[in-house]
Amino acid sequence: MSTATVMYPKASAEAVTLVEVCSVRLAQTWFGVPITHILEIVGSARPQPVPLAPAYVGGLVHYRGDVLTTVSLRQLLGLPPKEGTQDILVLECSSGCFGLLVDSVGEVLTVSSVDHEANPSILDERRKTLFAGAYKLKDKLLIMLDPERLDPMRLSAAQAG
């Protein structure tokens, strides 16, 4: 911790907070979603495609008596679609619930705010709007996703704009 204090004097001025984050994998990249926003994790789902829907819509899944719209993270990041099943994080945002399609769900990690850094300036604009900085872990970077920014309603507004 002491090294961190030296390197980031600004962060040390604020109280160090610990955040629980669920890690998810997409191709070779790890992403993190704050667990406070996760309602449930649904494993190996096969969403039903919706013809004529915006490209980022990954399809529909049946979730507890409701029909849930999913957002395909792969599509948002411009990756080719994955063969076979994907895992779904059921996320809660201000306008309701939606599912986030990821390749697989990792584990729940506790990360410290001192390890957080904002989006680097060289990141392209699209990714800047989707990511909420990253946590520097020992062996990798954990890119944070903000459920509010992934909300399909917001994505559609962003697309229209």
Binding site: V50, L52, A53, P54, V57, L60, G65, D66, V67, L68, T69, G96, F98, P152, M153, L155, S156
Partner: peptide, 13 residues
Amino acid sequence: KPLSAVLKDIGLY
């Protein structure tokens, strides 16, 4: 079952 607003906007369903 109702659809989310994004899909309702397609107008076919």
